[in-house]
């Protein structure tokens, strides 16, 4: 079992950029090897990137997936340890529907000594019809000044 308490950590993230965007806890894997975390991004007018359609900007989805994949790393490592995002690639498969909550699932599929490899998907109601797919890496900062 991971010693990293996802629910409690997600509450602590209510301040800062994640809190401003409105991201909160949704679900996480509880089996010993299930290193995934889901966070929710409720629709809010402040997130709109295209005022004509009411579709939210892509930036909040980047934040959602950065956080969900980060928490998946801590889940896998068993506790919070600082890391820095090295790169994050996001494919926007389609626009998220206005008024729908976006759910992002992050997964740490490989944990190296220096680098954590992550991937994830976001959907707005149907996990089989995702809005975004991400792949990224985090540089582990343990032992750094």
């Amino acid at each position: 079992m991971s010693g990293f308490d996802v629910v409690r950590f997600a509450e602590a993230l209510r301040h800062g950029h994640g809190g401003r965007v409105g991201i909160g806890y949704h679900a996480h894997g509880t089996e010993p090897d299930a290193h995934w975390v889901e966070l929710a991004l409720p629709y809010h007018p402040d997130l709109i990137g295209d005022p004509e359609s009411g579709v939210i900007a892509s930036g909040p989805i980047a934040t959602l997936m950065d956080m969900a994949t980060s928490m998946a790393v801590w889940r896998r490592r068993g506790r919070f340890l600082p890391h820095a995002t090295l790169d994050l690639r996001i494919d926007y498969l389609r626009a998220a529907r206005p008024l729908q909550t976006v759910v992002g699932r992050g997964e740490c599929y490989r944990l190296g000594r220096s680098i954590a490899f992550v991937r994830g998907q976001a959907h707005d109601g149907d996990p089989d019809d995702p809005v975004a797919h991400v792949a990224g890496t985090f540089m582990l900062m343990d032992g750094w000044a």
């Binding site: 401003r20 990137g49 959602l64 994050l88």
Partner: peptide, 25 residues
């Protein structure tokens, strides 16, 4: 500021991504 803050003292990577995308648009 607080609205774009990640870990204490640093910008959130998501806010940086958002800024870059707005600049690209």
């Amino acid at each position: 500021g607080t609205d774009v803050l990640g870990r204490p003292g640093f910008l959130h990577g998501g806010a940086i991504a958002g800024l870059l995308e707005v600049a690209a648009v």
